[in-house]
Design a protein around this nucleic acid. Sequence first.
DNA 1: CGTCTATTTGAATGTACTCAAAAGCGGTGG
DNA 2: CCACCGCTTTTGAGTACATTCAAATAGACG
Lengths: 190, 190
Amino acid sequence: MVDTSKFFSNIQKHIVLNDAEKNYLTSILEVKEVLRKELILKQGQQCKKIYFVVSGSLRAFHINNEGKDSTIMFAIQDWWITDMYCFINQKPALVAIEALENCQLIGLDFSSLEELYIKIPKFERFFRILFQNAYSREQLRALDHISYTTEERYYRFVHKYPEIVQKITQKQIASYLGVTPEFLSAIKNK
Amino acid sequence: MVDTSKFFSNIQKHIVLNDAEKNYLTSILEVKEVLRKELILKQGQQCKKIYFVVSGSLRAFHINNEGKDSTIMFAIQDWWITDMYCFINQKPALVAIEALENCQLIGLDFSSLEELYIKIPKFERFFRILFQNAYSREQLRALDHISYTTEERYYRFVHKYPEIVQKITQKQIASYLGVTPEFLSAIKNK
DNA sequence: CGTCTATTTGAATGTACTCAAAAGCGGTGG
DNA sequence: CCACCGCTTTTGAGTACATTCAAATAGACG
């Protein structure tokens, strides 16, 4: 069984829900369990959902036309993940999302989320805060990317997200930093 | 005089305001005119405001400890700009924001924005959409950054933001792409 | 018109990649 | 429980990408 209490407490960090609202939310959420290595979104598919991670960990990545694998983001327990661009524009996904371990997820469909905003407007607030934080994180990442060396970015990443680092390979860190695994290995061993 | 009508139509792309709401909004907004090269935010300062650009253009940039200048974002007419991380956490700014031309701006203070969310909750919706789009843009930028070559990113940038390109120097594009002006020059002339 | 900054060019250097091969490690099946 | 398989990590050589520094040229602005 997937425990939805973490999901509700994540939401109640920012807004307060009464029982009726919780029940409505329960009625539209979709519980999903996926196995390690399974894809919850494939590149080119329609991205219809945003996921909350109850347990496990995931990786969003893009394969370009030369076959290079680039990691856009990781998500662990208590994080939200989607291909934002495709979710809001309802376009084919630019990224795939794979489970790094067995995961318990809670998905919200694009159209039920739109309805949710209408029916219970305080969710506008919740997602306003969520996206504001996500935007801020990405702005910092852009800063990191153009302003620091690869070596510095590696140590900054490890220091900032130790819980993620535990769960992923060095190859995946390299793909997040935008360098080859060989080069990351060389950096570490000097 | 600064014309606030563009500001209101920007907001009314996503939500509808009645006269009382417009009046309230008018009462908290701060009109600001700045000259070319003026800084509206200095690195290390408290970032108290988010700005809407009525006219003109701006650049947010970071100077690291080696003196390297990295552009985080540009903003032109009808865009919003702030140092998001510092705005929401009320920490010293990581970036400076400078006017590239004479600008007419409308600023919203952090605390009056928080009050606005309480008084007129539909602004949660407006900023939810604004930040969702901003997040999506930054996610795409991260993808661009790790997945394409500098040359590709240059042409993608020029193609995606032609109105920005008109207003900025090549040196500033280089600083946005994260390369030296010399290297960008070499790319163009081959 | 003169000054200041941006852009270009080139040489030397450093950073990061490719390719290939070896070593390490974890999981699976016999 | 060990042996094998597949994948990750390491190592190294050769190459490509990008930087630094310096100097020349071109443009923009007062």
